[in-house]
Design a protein around this nucleic acid. Structure first.
Length: 416
RNA sequence: GUGGCUGUAGUUCAAUAGGUAGAGCCCCGGCUUGUGGUGCCGGUUGUUGCGGGUUCAAGUCCCGUCAGCCACCCCA
């Protein structure tokens, strides 16, 4: 068995685990619908190149955490590490934007990243997310953030903070980046080894280094928000104004950056202190131009976010709002294996009328069956006696004898 | 990829200074209670993660390995 265990970081889900993960997904799905998003499903397996070109080859997600392999025909495939690139690819491949120049997508499903597993982080994990395509205006950013906030709110999560920032656009980012790199090089001897590496590979990410000594230096660093071009600046102002108008709480974080290359302008993150090192629960932003990197129209705007489903679930558990297993409507028990056929007919009828029915029709003893009833959650129970009579018990009510008119029982139960 | 902690029945855990592996829960059966998680009796379950080593003898010591958890990295 040891060798047949599930793969490291990939978990079997059953009981409340499976149920509450599904509950989080449908909660997000229902809310996304209210925002006009429609559900899409894309394959779990994609061409490796899709992520190399959109997410970025230099990013950790693509560079070191991807499950990539060669298919039998020699093509390079991988398990998707995220879904945004896939959705973008889908839109281009099917020319969806011709019919729907503004398209809002919702998705839910498993993603794969080969990292060391820990609390709230698994190699196969789940995300729910939305992408709004073809909407360049700040109001779309506001709607996206409002949806993220609505999901958190619906789960009763009030210790999650929305942080907002901007990483600029191809107009203003290059010059800002140069300034930042110059600053970093000047302070190189003050910085940690990692930040010195990042200075060359991804300087923006230095800004959220966890080292206290680095942060001390970054107090004087040029920040992206202070170096936006006029257009980005106005966009940012528009987003903030919209959020204010809706009364949504957020905190402007001047040094908020992203790990994926495709972000432009707005970036935001919903964070918590309750998941150990995994503070990000929902993260997103704007990625205008992403369609260009997957072979589509460069000019198409896009905003969206992805939420870690397990992380939402874990937070709901701590908040006491996690969905639990629901009780059956009726539990049926026979006396030994007497009256099994009658029981089957009854169950068929009850189920046809929409009730959840569980039963123990085995030839086990009365004791075993009453024990079973005792630990099985249900609203009503029906003890079918060998003589054809039945005892109906409503939860919390006294036992009462009932004659075996199935129709009458059905009526009693379904009118409840 | 790096570091720390852990690894005994399905599960939660025990096992004095190394001496032939135990308990609760759960599960199964019976009795009792005229029938709802009661009480009593009985029963099943383990290559003590795996592989080496030290020893007359290792769950207990040493090495390795794998797995889990937590942290770093990174991210949702």
């Amino acid at each position: 068995m040891a060798s047949l265990r599930s793969v490291k970081g990939m978990n079997d889900l059953f009981g409340v685990e499976a149920l509450s993960l599904g509950a989080v997904e449908s909660l997000a799905r229902n809310l996304a619908k209210r925002w006009g998003a429609e559900e899409v499903r894309t394959p779990v397996l994609e061409k490796l190149d899709l992520f190399v070109r959109s997410v970025g080859e230099a990013t950790d997600v693509v560079g070191k955490e991807m499950y990539a392999f060669e298919d039998k025909d020699g093509s390079q495939l991988c398990l998707r590490p995220e879904a945004t690139a896939s959705v973008a690819r889908m839109l281009v491949q099917h020319g969806i934007l011709r019919d729907h120049p503004r398209f809002r997508a919702f998705y839910a499903g498993p993603m794969f990243r080969r990292e060391r597993p820990q609390k709230g982080r698994y190699r196969q994990f789940h995300q729910v997310g939305v992408e709004f395509f073809g909407e360049p205006e700040p109001s779309a950013d506001v709607e996206v953030i409002a949806l993220a906030a609505a999901i958190l709110d619906a789960l009763g999560l009030d210790d999650v903070v929305v942080e907002l920032g901007s990483v600029g656009c191809p107009e203003c980012r290059p010059s800002y980046r140069e300034q930042l790199v110059a600053f970093l090089r000047q302070e190189a001897d003050q910085l940690c080894e990692l930040c010195n590496q990042r200075t060359e590979t991804n300087p923006l990410r230095c800004l959220d280094c966890k080292s206290a000594s680095c942060q001390a230096v970054y107090g004087d660093a040029p920040l992206p928000l202070d170096h936006l071009c006029d257009a980005c600046d106005q966009h940012q102002a528009g987003v903030e104004k919209g959020l204010d108008r809706l009364g949504l709480d957020y905190r402007v974080n001047k040094r908020l950056v992203r790990g994926l290359d495709y972000y432009r302008r707005t970036v935001f993150e919903c964070t918590t202190q309750k998941l150990g090192a995994q503070s990000a629960v929902i993260a997103g932003g704007r990625y205008d131009g992403l369609l260009g990197s997957v072979g589509g129209d460069e000019g198409v705007a896009a905003v969206g976010f992805a939420a870690g489903t397990e992380r939402l679930q874990l937070l709901a558990r701590e908040a006491g709002t996690e969905a639990g297993l629901s009780p059956a409507d009726v539990a049926i028990v026979t006396d030994r294996n007497q009256g099994v056929d009658e029981a089957l007919v009854l169950m068929q009828g009850l189920r046809a009328s929409g009730l959840v029915v569980v039963a123990d029709l085995s030839d086990r003893g009365r004791k075993a069956k009453t024990k079973w009833l005792g630990r099985t959650t249900h609203r009503h129970s029906l003890f079918l006696e060998a003589d054809g009579s039945a005892r109906l018990r409503l939860q919390g009510m006294e036992t009462q004898a009932v004659h075996p008119e199935i129709a009458a029982i059905l009526q009693v139960l379904s009118s409840n």
